[in-house]
């Protein structure tokens, strides 16, 4: 079995997959990739099964060494990538040979980037998934010196790439009102709907605190409700009036009122908005959310049809620096002085 050795890695990197489903009644939330579409991109590029696990990076990557021939691919938020010190493109397959060094640098676009291998990383499966959730005791911290075992690929892998998806530009997210929306009066709900929200530094895999430009949002005074279950995407408003969107590694239950829920189709778009940038929201009807979900799933399904062969293996290109391999990255000289 081949393996990928970790030479160095960002402390926020972790193994993620589709997550654990069905254990919420036992107090276990799903975990799983913050950007599930990016996870699906990796599976499509490498022909992996949907349950294959990848490394998720948040803004910073790591340095890796192949101990055998490995087909790897990257997806999600674009990060600076080098193979044996030579820049290579994102969102494509790379064939690694024994001893090859892969450097995943800092984020260039988006927040969460993914490194996949054909066959998937074979870390321990717990409750049916390999998704890391440290606070709940699932998975482990990735660190220099570790060897990540890789499963046998199902088939040979072509050197394909995928086009940049459009959701990185999305700054308008769709939400549904929920069972606790009525705990906020009409004026507060209106204020919430019209606000522009800035992604705060208080963000991680549990959730993202979003700061509205309208000031604090307040639930009805004297509200005291017993805890119940929290769904991914629920927008919780704590006592100080700051909303937070609860995500993959959220707590399973809570008693703060939830004003609404982000639709599943926009989870990836939210996760990839850089800290300090802002977005608006739109409250949609349930039927529309179902349509969005269907479209989102169809986009996942047709990913393999979007694969396009890379014209040349980066390894065969003599003067790589002459090629603009990473979309949006230039020599640094600006043509636009306006």
């Amino acid at each position: 079995m081949s393996a990928l050795g970790i030479l160095s890695i960002s402390p926020s990197a972790c193994i993620q997959d589709q997550g654990r489903v069905g254990f919420l009644r036992y107090g276990v939330t799903s975990s799983g990739a913050m950007d599930m579409f990016a996870l699906a991109e990796g599976q499509a590029l490498l022909g992996n099964t949907p349950d294959a696990a990848a490394i998720e990076f948040a803004e910073f990557g790591g340095r890796f060494k192949a101990t055998g021939p490995l087909a790897v691919a990257t997806s999600g938020g674009v990060m600076a990538l080098k193979l044996n010190d030579i820049p290579v493109g994102w969102r494509q397959v790379l064939a690694l040979r024994v001893g090859d060094i892969l450097d995943v640098g800092a984020s260039i676009e988006g927040v969460y980037g993914y490194l996949h291998v054909a066959g998937g990383f074979q870390t321990e499966r717990m409750l049916g998934a390999r998704a890391t959730h440290l606070r709940a005791g699932f998975g482990h911290v990735l660190a220099a010196g570790q060897m990540l075992q890789v499963g046998a690929p199902d088939r040979s892998v072509a050197i394909n790439g995928l086009p940049r998806p459009d959701y990185f530009d999305r700054r308008h997210l769709r939400i549904l009102w929920g069972p606790q929306s009525q705990y906020f009066d009409a004026a507060e709900r209106e204020k919430f709907t019209m606000a522009r929200f800035t992604i705060s530094k208080m963000r991680d895999r549990m959730g993202i605190q979003i700061n509205p430009d309208c000031g604090p949002i307040h639930a009805a005074a004297g509200l005291s409700i017993a805890s119940d279950s929290i769904n991914a995407g629920d927008i919780q408003v704590t006592g100080d009036g700051t909303p937070a969107i609860l995500l993959a590694d959220r707590g399973p239950s809570g008693g703060y009122p939830r004003i609404g829920t982000l639709v599943t189709a926009d989870f990836g778009a939210l996760a990839q908005i850089p800290t300090g940038e802002s977005f608006t929201i739109e409250v949609i009807e349930r039927a529309e959310a179902v349509v969005l979900l269907e479209k989102y799933r169809n986009k996942n399904k047709v990913l393999s049809a979007s694969l396009r062969p890379m014209l040349r293996d980066p390894r065969d290109i003599g003067d790589l620096l002459a090629y603009n391999l990473i979309s949006g990255v230039t020599t640094g000289a600006s043509d636009d002085e306006s």
């Binding site: 489903v21 254990f23 919420l24 009644r25 017993a226 805890s227």
Partner: peptide, 22 residues
């Protein structure tokens, strides 16, 4: 239905709206 989640005061019924209409 994907799962049901009882709490102190409510039952959350999670389902796939493409398999089971609301």
């Amino acid at each position: 239905v994907i799962e049901t989640v009882p709490s102190f005061r409510s039952l959350l019924v999670r389902f796939d709206p493409l398999e089971l209409a609301f």
